[in-house]
């Protein structure tokens, strides 16, 4: 069992060999995943990778065709109601009553969690306060900004302090300010010990918020690990060299002591970039080569790869694998 070294008693979510097809087209194709309580697990993948299908199955909205899924110790198919008691869901579209106000929404959902009228009212007040929504008055949710709506949606997901919170692309469609608002809210939750599964197609978002990341493509996990591990797994560090004169890019690539097949050149930014194995040797080698050839550099820097590069690397590997085994 691939549970990433997580002890079973501490797992918040276990997903084993889950399949789901829509009219013959597989959305999830044998997906495995497990993560511990008290962590933030990122599921990173492009549109159509199966992220939303996964969240809908985990939150009991969709039945899997095959596989085993446990959330907070309960089977999502056989014990759906037990699971529903323990989860919070923030879907891609605001799951709110748009005609009602913020407080009305939270009180209604509180009653549906069976908190009782008084407790539901108190809880609504606490959450409105916490997400900075107390001064919205009677304004219907329809009139909220995108960021406000998302925060209210998040508040509604937290009414019963869920054991596991699912966030499906929580910042898709938000402007940078809305995104910053949601990130701050998620960070404060994690500080309070909430277990979170977060799907995203923004690599930066996974890097910022998640402890561990599963990279998903075509309904399967193609890589798994911390952001640092994923970066290390795809060629380690990189060196970036920015030249003063774009005309010298070709000559510089020829003379630099870097692996020619893996060098990328961005003429607009006058940038040469390549993976390195020995950081210091590569740095001094590059500096020396440029001095000897009298090529002027504006900037030379060693850095870790971005998750974009990691993702491209991983999906390229997978495309190659598919090309080798086309009939599988």
């Amino acid at each position: 069992m691939e549970s990433g070294g997580v002890a079973v008693a501490d797992t918040a979510v276990i997903v084993e060999g889950v399949r789901k097809a829509y009219g013959g087209t597989p959305a999830l194709d044998g997906l495995d995943l497990a993560f511990a309580r008290g962590t933030v697990h990122g599921v990173l993948g492009p549109n159509g990778a199966g992220k939303t299908t996964l969240v809908r199955i985990l939150s009991t909205l969709l039945r899997p065709d095959a596989g085993r899924i446990e959330v907070a110790g309960h089977d999502v198919v056989a014990e759906a109601r037990e699971v529903r008691r323990r989860i919070g869901l923030l879907g891609q579209h605001a799951a709110l009553d748009e005609q009602l106000g913020g407080r009305q929404n939270l009180e209604m959902f509180g009653r549906l969690y069976h908190l009782g009228a008084r407790h539901a009212r108190v809880r609504a007040g606490v959450l409105l306060e916490r997400f900075g929504l107390t001064d919205t008055g009677r304004k219907p949710v329809r009139a909220y900004s995108g960021g406000m709506r998302r925060r209210l949606d998040l508040a509604a997901s937290l009414i019963r302090d869920p054991d596991v919170l699912f966030l499906d692309e929580p910042t898709t469609g938000l402007d940078p300010r809305g995104r910053a608002e949601v990130w701050a809210s998620v960070r404060s939750l994690v500080g309070g010990g909430t277990t979170v599964l977060l799907t995203t197609q923004y690599l930066e978002e996974a890097d910022q918020l998640a402890d561990r990341i599963s990279v998903v493509a075509s309904g399967r996990v193609i890589a798994d690990g911390t952001a640092d591990e994923l970066k290390a797994a795809t060629g380690g560090d990189r060196i970036d060299v920015v030249l003063r004169d774009a005309g010298q890019l070709g000559a510089a690539v020829a003379l630099l002591p870097l692996p020619k097949s893996e060098v990328t050149v961005d003429p607009d930014r006058r940038l040469i970039s390549a993976p390195v194995t020995d950081r210091m040797a590569a740095l001094s080698g590059v500096v020396r080569a440029l001095e000897e050839a009298c090529v002027e550099a504006e900037d030379i820097a060693l850095r870790r790869p971005t998750l974009d590069e990691v993702f491209l690397h991983l999906t390229a590997d997978r495309a190659e694998e598919a090309a080798w085994a086309p009939t599988r």
């Binding site: 009991t60 909205l61 008691r85 879907g91 605001a94 799951a95 709110l96 549906l112």
Partner: peptide
Amino acid sequence: DKGVIDRFRSLPMANGA
């Protein structure tokens, strides 16, 4: 048409309510 039905369905409420 709205996402609110997803929230209702993910709550531990009575199915037909």
